[in-house]
């Protein structure tokens, strides 16, 4: 089989680009991911006819996306990483000394109508941007790319406890941010 990047790009390029953009949220990174995918596809040239080319390329792209997440995380200053103990002080903003909520969580619903839903998602997007970059990336890896925790641990060379603490903190921050920016009257 002669691999033909032209054909791949014409038939699957837009799809792969959207797939990458939806997960990386940055057009340049998404283009890079597609480019890396094409390179790997042509180098490896191990396409087996029993899956569709799109499935095969998407499989490669998924790994490239994880590579980019990993890179993003390692680019962050280490200070983000240090305070990883969920046990205590890091959650002082949310709980009092006896472990009760300082501000009780409010009812949060995803709006039904399309316009409001769009606004809700855009508020959420802004909230993700406000998180410390490491937390945001781990959160996106888990909840957006739906990477298994085990793989996240391996990729980040972090313990399972570290990863769940990061996820916990990211989620705590995001739901608070949604309460403040979406539920405000």
């Amino acid at each position: 089989m002669t691999p033909n990047v032209n054909d791949w790009l014409n038939e699957h390029g837009d799809y792969l680009y959207r797939f990458a953009l939806a997960r990386l949220r940055d057009p340049h990174e998404a283009e890079d991911a597609v480019q890396e995918t094409m390179l790997a596809a042509i180098k490896g040239n191990n396409f087996e006819g029993d899956s569709s080319a799109r499935t095969w390329l998407t499989g490669i792209l998924k790994h490239k996306i994880i590579d980019l997440y990993r890179k993003k995380i390692h680019e962050q200053p280490l200070s983000d990483f240090t305070d990883l103990d969920a046990s205590d002080s890091s959650m002082d903003d949310f709980f009092d000394k006896s472990g009760h909520w300082l501000d009780k969580p409010q009812t949060l619903d995803m709006p039904d109508n399309a316009l409001e839903q769009k606004q809700f998602l855009s508020v959420l997007s802004d909230c993700v941007d406000k998180l410390p970059a490491r937390l945001a990336t781990v959160f996106l890896m888990r909840d957006l790319h739906e990477t298994d925790n085990e793989i996240i641990c391996n990729e980040l060379q972090a313990t399972a406890t570290n990863v769940w603490v990061m996820l916990y903190r990211a989620r705590m921050g995001l739901r608070k941010c949604l309460e403040m920016n979406w539920l405000k009257d």
Partner: peptide, 12 residues
């Protein structure tokens, strides 16, 4: 809230 958060991210 956490379930809505997780669904919403997938919505985006």
């Amino acid at each position: 809230q956490l379930h809505i958060l997780s669904d919403a991210v997938k919505g985006i």
